Computed example of a mutant assay.
Amino acid sequence: MTARPVAPDGMARRSFVLDNTALLPVPLCPEILLHVADEALALWQRTEQELDEIGLPAPFWAFAWAGGQALARHVLDHRDTVAGRHVLDLGAGSGLVGIAAMRAGAASVTAIDPDPWAIAAIGLNAAANGVNVTAVEGDGLDGEASGFDVVLIGDLFYEQPLAERLLAFVERAHRGGAAILIGDPGRSYLPRHRLVRLAEYSVPTTRALEDSEIKRTAVWSPGWPAR
């Protein structure tokens, strides 16, 4: 009888993050440090080899994606968008956007991600930046945004089923009175025709992740009335 693999616990996940990343400044937001992969492809391959048998996703948490960088920069430069407010960082990954919100004066930040490795990374990254972010495992897309004044979404419109669920969540949250900010570098399923562009940034990236070393990345908000 073959033994079933045992999922690592929280301590093992934190150790994995620390062992496979370096604490580095974010290119567009150098005032923030993140535990990120030095060699993107090497980490991707290692997670496939070591973690695939227990059904875990790719290590999106180990990179500062273009949409998240632009959104974090926008929040840091426009502190009034989050200052004193309760913020939800949806699909948080590394926690970059939520950390930026706390650095910009948010009253609280809850970062939601379905990947338990992301939860470990968020905790480590928040501690490295001297802020408190509540990390919650899950995707949160079937619920409401009640209790949050601001919803931040960094670089999530990259596949159609997810984009459809995201848009439905955004519509509900917007009707409920939450401010919505979306960072996106031109992903295929962003509903641009329904959004208003607030700002645009040239974001340094790597060709291991993107098709160019600089990604023109916009910050958007809903273009329809809240009610």
Rank of each mutant, 00 (worst) to 15 (best):
E210V: 02
R175F: 06
S212E: 14
T206F: 02
D149Q: 12
L124F: 04
S188A: 14
P116F: 10
A199F: 01
D115Y: 07
V196F: 01
H174F: 05
D113P: 14
R192C: 07
P191T: 08
G143R: 03
L195N: 04
S108T: 13
A173S: 09
E159V: 11
E164P: 09
L124H: 01
G176C: 03
S146D: 11
I122S: 03
S108L: 04
A135H: 02
F148W: 14
V150A: 00
G183E: 09
G186K: 13
V196K: 15
A173L: 10
I182T: 08
P116G: 12
L209D: 03
D149L: 09
L190S: 00
L166Y: 08
G154T: 06
V170W: 11
L96G: 03
G98H: 04
L181H: 13
H193C: 03
F148H: 15
A145P: 10
D155V: 11
A168K: 14
R103A: 10
F169T: 08
A168Y: 11
L167H: 13
G123L: 06
I112Q: 11
Y201S: 02
A168R: 14
G154K: 05
G140R: 00
V133F: 00
A121M: 01
E210Y: 15
G123K: 08
R197I: 00
A173H: 11
V170T: 14
Y158K: 12
A145C: 07
D115I: 09
S188L: 11
A179P: 00
S202Y: 06
S108V: 02
P191E: 10
A168E: 15
I153F: 10
D142Y: 05
H174S: 11
N125E: 03
L141K: 02
S202F: 09
G147F: 14
E144S: 11
R192F: 08
L198E: 11
L198F: 08
W117G: 04
G186T: 03
A126I: 05
L141E: 04
T110D: 09
H174K: 12
D142Q: 13
A106D: 00
G138H: 03
E210S: 12
N132P: 01
R103G: 00
